[in-house]
Nucleic acid binder design. Structure first.
Length: 446
RNA sequence: CGGGACAUGGCGCAGCCUGGUAGCGCACCUGCUUUGGGAGCAGGGGGUCGCAGGUUCAAAUCCUGCUGUCCCGACCA
């Protein structure tokens, strides 16, 4: 993409309303634009990031056996009256009426709807287990939206739902999601720690919040330091195998947010040097709730014995739009964002430092064509602005690799590759630049 | 939902206390110069001062109401 034809409205100054770093950087780097409290428009660069995150989530969901669907944002109030949540949900739910004065709502979540969809077709244990997910905009009328997209009212969420014949089978479904979440966040460069959360009516250990550490986190978390180092399940993970050992390994060390924290247990279980106390941002939540919705909605299936039993379900959420903010909280410096390669809007920023020099223009055009041919996502700064403007803008938007071409280096027949993360600058002969970039991208993503 | 603040060109702000018809920096446009870290000179365009009412000869400025936004605390992907 040529910058001269792109839409990248960067801000030189900090918008007054943004107080935390991710919000500031998202506005300054032209990722989003606020429309009203807690509601954002996604500009081209931010939208690319959102799509990258979505793709990783989708890939890991499918790998774990979940099936993608798409449910509407607008729902009828009927289903919610049957589950009892139409009253219960309160003011967080945006209620609407259509022209016939029928009650509708903008979905804050989809347990009722998905249960209805699934149970209308699933008749027996032979149709189980299944896991359906979708990635769709939600609306929760938060009392106090803040922190940019991290606590918006409208937000993009992956919500998945499992359906099983009995509780034991439900636990297996839960473990699949648990393990897939570890992998999902890892692929975005995040260390998300599963923390025991309130379990509601079912009890047991079947609710976990996945949080990443960040100074601006909304809750205080307490955990064993080992969790920061523990190895992740690899690409060869077999979701049909027994995942209990993995889940047990990850849930054994102490890890709780402030609402569940018990100082006495923490201090008895964790040695002083192993105690980690930090702020956390919740990016995912897995929850097994049994027949909480299937019973009121009369979603039943036949057992092998011919009895009729309610479906056993869990729900599994990932805050997709929140992750954009969360990742920036985890990866930035004074100059701007530092995108992990897996979700960077472009892999390479090609910068022409000598826009008035024919040899620089020619070289950049050639490189740009080569990079495109190699399938490397490139943002080409072909503007005629000053070098300082270009370089600081590139740093602000945080592309992992900068490829700088200027009269100074071109005289030596080289271009410069600068790593955004380390600031390391390498001179590479012009003819080898694309190959080198390819190697760098391969090395890091491997 | 309790407490607090703010609202003035695209962005960041001053002006308000003590009423006299709007200004600064950045951005933008034109020209010339400049080009390896947010350029220089000259010229130029753009604002019913959030909305509605009131006081006054006169309101960005004083008064009332409304709306919007942000911050702190209790709740949530």
């Amino acid at each position: 993409m040529r910058l001269t034809r792109y839409f990248l409205p960067v801000l030189k100054e900090n918008p007054a309303e943004a107080h935390i770093v991710s919000h500031r950087l998202m506005l300054r780097a032209g990722l989003v634009q606020q429309q009203t409290a807690g509601i954002y428009a996604w500009l081209p660069l931010g939208f690319r990031v959102l799509k990258k995150i979505e793709a990783i989530v989708r890939d890991e969901q499918e790998r774990a056996g979940s099936i993608e669907i798409l449910m509407p944002t607008i729902q009828s109030a009927d289903l919610w009256e049957r589950s009892g949540r139409y009253q219960e949900y309160g003011k967080e739910m945006l209620r609407i009426q259509d022209r016939h004065e029928r009650d509708l709502l903008y979905g804050p979540t989809n347990e009722e709807m998905v249960t209805s969809i699934f149970s209308s077709a699933a008749r027996s244990y032979r149709d189980l287990p299944r896991n359906l997910f979708h990635i769709q905009w939600k609306f929760r009328d938060e009392v106090r939206p803040r922190f940019g997209v991290m606590r918006g009212r409208e937000f993009l969420m992956k919500d998945g739902y499992s359906f099983d014949i009995d509780a034991e089978s439900g636990r297996r479904s839960y473990r699949r999601m648990f393990v897939s979440y570890l992998r999902t966040f890892e692929r975005m460069g995040l260390r998300a720690i599963p923390m025991a959360a309130q379990t509601g009516p079912i009890g047991g250990d079947l609710s976990h919040e996945f949080s990443i550490l960040a100074e601006t986190g909304e809750s205080q978390i307490f955990c064993h330091r080992d969790l920061m180092e523990m190895s992740m399940p690899g690409d060869d993970i077999d979701y049909d195998s027994d995942l209990k050992p993995i889940v047990e390994r990850w849930t054994k060390p102490y890890a709780r947010a402030d609402d569940e924290h018990d100082p006495a247990v923490f201090e008895s279980e964790v040695a002083p040097n192993d105690r980690l106390e930090a702020r956390g941002i919740e990016v995912g939540h897995v929850f097994f709730f049994g027949s909480k919705y299937s019973e009121p909605l009369e979603a039943t299936v036949s057992t092998p014995e011919g009895r009729s039993v309610p479906l056993q379900s869990g729900s599994y959420g990932i805050g997709v739009s929140r992750l954009v903010g969360a990742i920036i909280e985890a990866y930035h410096d004074d100059a701007g964002i530092i995108w992990p390669e897996s979700i960077a809007p472009f892999q390479v920023g090609l910068v022409n430092l000598g826009p008035d020099k024919p040899e620089c223009v020619e070289c950049c055009e050639s490189l740009y064509a080569q990079l495109n041919n190699a399938g490397i996502e490139t943002l080409f700064d072909d503007t005629s602005e000053n070098p300082g403007v270009k370089l600081s803008r590139m740093e602000l938007i945080g592309l992992p690799w900068q490829l700088r071409i200027g009269p100074r280096s071109l005289k030596k027949g080289v271009g410069e590759i600068q790593a955004r993360r380390t600031g390391e600058n390498t001179e590479v002969p012009v003819d080898n630049l694309v190959e080198r970039i390819n190697t760098l991208l391969g090395r890091v993503s491997a």
